[in-house]
Simulated scan of single mutants.
Amino acid sequence: MKSDIEVKRIAKEVLKNEADALLKLIDYIDDDFVKSVQLIFESKGRVVITGVGKSAIIAQKIVATMNSTGTPSIYMHAADAIHGDLGNIQQDDVVICISKSGTTPEVKVLIPLIKNFGNKIIAITGNMTSNLATSADFVLNATIDVEACPNNLAPTTSTTAQLAIGDALAVCLLNLKSFSSTDFAKYHPGGALGKKLYLRVGEVADRNEKPSVKLTDNLKAVIVEISANRLGAAAVVENGGLKGVITDGDLRRMLSGSVDFDTITAADIMSKSPKSIDYDSLAVEALKVMKMHNISQLIVLKEGQYAGLIHIHDLIREGIL
């Protein structure tokens, strides 16, 4: 086992190698890159991305990125393509072929078949004189000096370069399409990122009980209401209108003082200016308010009327925090 110092040195060297390679890619962004973006943007079809080995894995990731940012894409393994999957390619599709060497046997066989269909081909390759580079309509240069692998064999820096070019394509297309955060949420409805963009306070609050007491309710009624609903608070309501809030913290502070338990009412304990949020606000806004005021629950109002409570635990459960 190598020493801790040696392991850290190797890791830093790998990252520096890959970072330097990415910086060099900046100089490779040329007219072919611009034309590739325009081609995909103006296409009426999808983007079909293909490759073999590690390049195939990168192809899958680029497909996922493009799909999630509004550019319809599919993955096609180059070996499977020449054994029947060519049927995936439709008339208006644009094909991106990824290969470090540009001479992979499956890709060499695939290229003329795609050209016979009349589809445009974009190459992402590290060999600008390869069969793939000279056959493609547009070439995106992914040349690297050396792999991070000490034997210069395992695809490491080269796949990082391919991935970065794919990200650059996807983000350029995202900008051309004016793809907004609302659009993003449509494609990520089940994830935490999407929830931050679409989940509303009301959707969360409606799943909770709506603890409330009247101004004249006694201490026992207040304690029972807060305890029964397990949200750490109860709104003080009169004719649907919010008058205040009582939290478990308010109860603790009250109990630490000298009070007449027989005569105290909700009106005596409540905070008269509770923090609140509108029913239609985004849940992520509720989190911001809680953090700003260092509180764990918020009153929810709908058209000015008490509509429930939202607790920070609700937001944790939803993955917002």
Rank of each mutant, 00 (worst) to 15 (best):
K2E: 06
K2T: 05
I5M: 13
E6H: 03
V7W: 02
A11W: 02
V14K: 02
E18V: 01
A19Y: 01
D30K: 14
D32H: 10
F33W: 10
V34S: 13
V37K: 02
Q38K: 01
L39G: 08
I40T: 09
T50K: 06
T50A: 15
V52R: 01
A56L: 15
A56H: 14
A59D: 03
K61F: 12
S68W: 01
G70I: 05
P72N: 04
Y75R: 02
I82L: 15
Q91C: 12
Q91A: 14
D93M: 11
V95L: 11
V95A: 05
G102M: 11
T104D: 10
V107I: 15
F117N: 07
I122Q: 07
A123G: 02
I124L: 12
M128I: 14
M128Q: 04
S130H: 03
A136C: 05
N141H: 01
T143K: 14
T143P: 02
I144R: 00
I144V: 12
D145A: 02
V146M: 08
E147V: 08
A148C: 03
C149P: 00
P150D: 09
L153K: 07
P155F: 14
P155M: 14
S158Y: 01
Q162T: 11
L163T: 07
L169V: 10
A170K: 03
C172L: 06
K177G: 05
K177V: 08
S178C: 08
F179R: 05
T182C: 10
A185C: 07
A185D: 12
K186N: 11
G190E: 04
L193T: 01
L193K: 09
G194K: 02
L199N: 06
L199K: 04
E203M: 15
A205W: 00
P211L: 08
P211T: 08
S212W: 00
S212G: 08
V213K: 05
V213E: 09
T216W: 09
N218M: 10
I223P: 01
V224N: 12
I226T: 04
N229R: 02
R230A: 15
L231R: 06
A234C: 15
V237R: 05
V237K: 14
N239Q: 11
G240C: 10
G240Q: 07
D248T: 09
R252C: 03
M254D: 05
G257A: 13
G257E: 11
S258D: 15
V259M: 13
D260R: 00
D260W: 12
D260C: 05
D260E: 10
T263S: 14
T263C: 06
P274S: 13
K275N: 08
L282Q: 12
A283D: 03
A286T: 01
K288S: 14
V289I: 13
M290P: 08
K291H: 09
I295N: 00
V300M: 13
Q305T: 00
G308C: 12
L309D: 06
L309K: 01
I310H: 05
H311E: 03
H311T: 06
H311R: 04
L321N: 07
L321W: 06
